[in-house]
């Protein structure tokens, strides 16, 4: 019996969400008195032994380069075999794009109960109860997994990375056959230099109050000063002022950054559903009656075109 954490990587680097998953998996293992291990499919340039500081003793690696690319069907077979050969009973993923493709397949393959979007450590005092976000961030459900093998995917930014002493992890190569993929990838388009929205600590978001796409410079400048990702409300994406992948809310992406700055967004219930798990919310809106102020921690009633450039200047001052 052990806890096995899936390590997600791209372009040779381990993703930040995986450090959270490793910290989480190590804590679950400690709680149950089990060893914590990690599973890496493919190869990375990062130093694997350094992952020991997140509390895992062993990295199980299937070092086949064809696995650097995600095909959920192919990877699931490899993961299922790794789970069997290591005797893992709890498998942890990040609830990001990769985890959403893999966790359900792996759970079905192992006949394991699945909780996606976990936000806290399991309560194991009676059963194995995992708290997850439901109703698009408006509530939580405590879900009891009743099967012997369990699969959990952890919401990004929900569990703090815990880096302890630098005890290096050992790497163990697993010899598992990899099937040919039935998926032929023809193009990969990555937005260069931008912080991915779901992994960002700070998000600066604009709404219809900004009047048009030509005014997004002030949003981008602020985001740049804060090393933040940018987001937008639904009508902004629907009017093609901003790309669809920036749309947050009930029908867009749900995020939980440390800081969410909403500029010219009214705070409709469907918008809040995507952002209300943010740790701190700042609202800048010229209408003092805007509903968003009720969900905010800090607010400025004022004209975005006046306030936002000043805010960017002040941020630059303290960042210097």
């Amino acid at each position: 019996m052990s806890v096995l954490v899936y390590i997600d990587h791209s372009d040779g680097h381990i993703k930040k969400s995986s450090f959270e998953a490793l910290s989480y998996g190590a804590a679950v293992a400690k709680q149950l008195g089990l060893p914590a291990e990690a599973l890496l499919l493919g190869t990375v340039t990062d130093d694997l032994s350094a992952l020991g500081k997140y509390g895992v003793a062993t990295i199980q690696q299937v070092n086949n380069d064809s696995l650097n690319h995600l095909d959920a069907q192919v990877q699931t077979k490899v993961i299922a075999e790794a789970v069997q050969s290591t005797g893992a009973t709890i498998v942890v993923f990040s609830h990001n794009q990769t985890g959403k493709a893999l966790a359900p397949r792996v759970a079905a393959s192992l006949k394991a109960g699945l909780v996606t979007g976990a936000v806290a450590l399991p309560d194991t005092s009676s059963g194995f109860v995992v708290k997850k976000s439901v109703f698009s961030g408006k509530a939580f459900a405590n879900v009891n997994i009743t099967s012997p093998v369990k699969v959990i995917s952890l919401n990004p930014n929900s569990y703090k990375t815990v880096a302890g002493d630098d005890k290096p992890a050992s790497v163990n190569l697993l010899n598992i056959a990899v099937e040919d993929s039935r998926v032929k990838v023809t193009a990969v388009n990555k937005v260069k230099g931008e912080v991915p929205l779901t992994e960002a600590d700070i998000v600066v978001s604009g709404g219809r109050g900004l009047k048009g796409p030509e005014n997004w410079g002030i949003v981008e400048d602020l985001a740049h000063a804060l090393h933040a990702a940018t987001a937008c409300s639904r009508p902004v994406a629907d009017s093609h002022w901003r790309p669809h992948h920036e749309h947050v809310g009930q029908t867009g992406i749900q995020i939980a950054p440390n800081l969410y700055i909403a500029i010219g967004i009214s705070g409709a219930i469907q918008h809040l559903a995507g952002v209300n798990r943010s740790k701190h919310i700042v609202v800048i809106n010229k209408d003092p009656e805007a509903p968003f102020f009720k969900a905010a921690d800090y607010g400025i009633v004022g004209d975005a075109f006046d306030v936002v450039p000043k805010l960017t200047e002040e941020i630059k001052k303290i960042r210097q």
């Binding site: 966790a103 359900p104 996606t116 979007g117």
Partner: peptide, 15 residues
């Protein structure tokens, strides 16, 4: 938008 599982498609495909 109520359970936010994002799981059913993957489970069907695996089965």
């Amino acid at each position: 938008i109520d359970y936010n599982g994002s799981a059913i498609g993957g489970i069907i495909a695996e089965l």
